[in-house]
C-alpha cells in the first residue's frame, strides 16, 4: 500500500534538513581545507632552511654521522612504536579507518618478526579505536586535529625522541594520510626514527642547490657558535619535529578534503532521495484524486 501524502511529505522535509546540514559541513570543510593548504606552504621555507643548515653543519663538523644517536640503526630491533595520525572527528569517509587499518597491518607485520609493538595516536578517533580494540596507546594526543600547532607536533616528537633515545623503543614508524588533492588522500607509512642519514644530509630540495653553488663558488669561512657538531646534534631532532609537524598538517588537509568529498556525496544522495520521494508523493496524490473521482462517479451512478 502506498504511503499517504503526509508521510512522504514529512520524509522529504527531514531529508531536506539533512541536506542543508551536509551542504554546510561541505562548505566549512572547503574553507578549512584552504587554510590547511596555506599552512603546508608556510612550513616549506622553514623546513628547507633546516635541511640546508643541517647539510652545512654536517659538512663543517666533518665527523661522520655515526656519532649522532638518532641516526644510528639498532640491531637487533626488538621494540617498535607506531604513531597513527587520525582526526578528532568522523564523518570524513574512509579517512580515519584507512589509517587505522594500515597501522594495525604494520603492527601485525612487526609482530610476525617477533617484535613487540606499542602505539602512539594523535586524534580522538585513533585513540578511541585503539582503546576499543584493547590496545591502550602509549601516548594519546587529542584536541588539535582541526588546526595542529607546531608545539603539538613538538610534544609528540619529543615523546618519541625520548622513548627512542632512552631505549624504550628501537624503531618508530608513522602512519598518516598524505594530502594529494581535495579528492585524493594517500596513506603513507614512513620510518621516523632512526632518521635516514641520506634524508638529512643529501636531500636537496629543488632549486636550492643551484642557489648555494652561486654563493659557494668560493667557500666562505663561517663562524660557528658553538661547534658545528653541537649545532648538528640539535638540528637532527628538529628535523624529526618538522617531519611530525608536516605529517600533522598533511593529515589535517586530507581530513578536510575527505570530509568535503564525503559531504558532497551525502548532499548529492540527499538530492536524489528528495527527487524519488517527490515522485512518490505525486503518485500518492494522483492516486488519492483518482480514488475520489471514482467515488464521485460511483456515487452519481448510484443515484
Amino acid at each position: 500500500m502506498p504511503q499517504s501524502q503526509r508521510d512522504v511529505r514529512n520524509r522529504i522535509a527531514s531529508v531536506r534538513n539533512i541536506q542543508k546540514i551536509t551542504r554546510a559541513m561541505e562548505m566549512v570543510a572547503a574553507a578549512r581545507l584552504r587554510r590547511a593548504e596555506q599552512r603546508i606552504t608556510a612550513l616549506r621555507p622553514y623546513a628547507n632552511a633546516i635541511a640546508r643548515m643541517t647539510r652545512k653543519a654536517a659538512q663543517a663538523s666533518g665527523a661522520g654521522t655515526a656519532t649522532l644517536p638518532l641516526l644510528a640503526e639498532r640491531d637487533p630491533c626488538e621494540r617498535v612504536a607506531v604513531l597513527l595520525v587520525t582526526g578528532d572527528r568522523g564523518l570524513a569517509g574512509a579517512f580515519n579507518s584507512q589509517v587505522l587499518r594500515a597501522g594495525l597491518r604494520t603492527a601485525e607485520e612487526h609482530r610476525s618478526l617477533g617484535r613487540s609493538v606499542s602505539f602512539y595516536a594523535s586524534g580522538r578517533r585513533g585513540v578511541s579505536s585503539l582503546a576499543f580494540r584493547g590496545t591502550e596507546p602509549e601516548g594519546a594526543y587529542v584536541g588539535f586535529s582541526d588546526r595542529p600547532s607546531f608545539s603539538d607536533a613538538r610534544r609528540i616528537a619529543q615523546d618519541l625522541i625520548v622513548a627512542y633515545s632512552d631505549r624504550a623503543v628501537d624503531l618508530v614508524e608513522i602512519v598518516y594520510n598524505r594530502y594529494v588533492s581535495p579528492l585524493v588522500q594517500e596513506v603513507r607509512r614512513e620510518v621516523l626514527l632512526p632518521v635516514a642519514a641520506a634524508a638529512v644530509l643529501d636531500q636537496a630540495p629543488g632549486g636550492l642547490r643551484e642557489e648555494e653553488h652561486q654563493q659557494d663558488g668560493r667557500p666562505t669561512p663561517v663562524d660557528y657558535e658553538p661547534d658545528p657538531a653541537v649545532i648538528l646534534a640539535r638540528l637532527v631532532p628538529d628535523y624529526v619535529e618538522v617531519s611530525v609537524f608536516r605529517s600533522l598538517l598533511e593529515s589535517t588537509a586530507s581530513e578536510h578534503g575527505a570530509r568535503m568529498t564525503a559531504m558532497r556525496n551525502a548532499s548529492e544522495n540527499a538530492g536524489e532521495l528528495i527527487g524519488d520521494l517527490t515522485l512518490q508523493m505525486n503518485r500518492a496524490r494522483q492516486a488519492e484524486i483518482t480514488q475520489e473521482i471514482l467515488e464521485v462517479v460511483a456515487g452519481a451512478e448510484g443515484l
Binding site: 643548515m53 669561512p221 663561517v222 660557528y224 657558535e225 658553538p226
Partner: peptide, 18 residues
Amino acid sequence: TAVGTIGILARHEPLLGL
C-alpha cells in the same frame, strides 16, 4: 646564542649559531 648575547650589525662575518 649558546655562547652568549650577540648584536649583529650590517656586514657581520658569516655566522651559523644556535
